[in-house]
């Protein structure tokens, strides 16, 4: 059980680091937003991993609920970031067309 938790959680940490890397080195907004979502998904993986209690026991519901909450928060933030980005792009295209 510990091995499964460790492998799944470590994969989550890897996702976190990869997302962080992509966020820091890539310029385009869309890549940054996707990177942040990957970073978040990595943290959610860690929560899911520690909820696992083997094949016989039911999983810990608390981390599951935290991840559900976290997903909604991530969706909301992503939506706002995308709209701000679209607004900015509109403004820049207008500047260029003048």
């Amino acid at each position: 059980m510990l091995t499964a938790q460790f492998l799944y959680g470590a994969a989550g940490l890897m996702l976190f680091v990869l997302g962080l890397w992509s966020f820091l080195v890539h310029e385009p907004l869309l890549r940054k937003i996707i990177a942040l979502n990957i970073t978040g998904a990595g943290v959610f993986h860690v929560f899911i991993a520690i909820a696992y209690r083997g094949d016989t026991a039911p999983p810990d519901p608390v981390p599951h609920a935290l991840v559900l909450t976290g997903i909604v928060v991530a969706v909301s933030a992503t939506a706002l970031a995308l709209m701000l980005g679209a607004r900015l792009q509109d403004a820049e295209e207008e500047d260029q067309s003048r």
């Binding site: 970073t39 978040g40 943290v43 860690v46 970031a81 701000l84």
Partner: peptide, 23 residues
């Protein structure tokens, strides 16, 4: 937009700390 993204990064880092503590 930058403020939002930076803030999100900060919260995710915070959340990973919370995950470690819960573990």
């Amino acid at each position: 937009l930058r403020y939002l993204l930076v803030g999100l990064l900060g919260s995710i880092s915070y959340l990973l700390g919370v995950a470690l503590l819960y573990t």
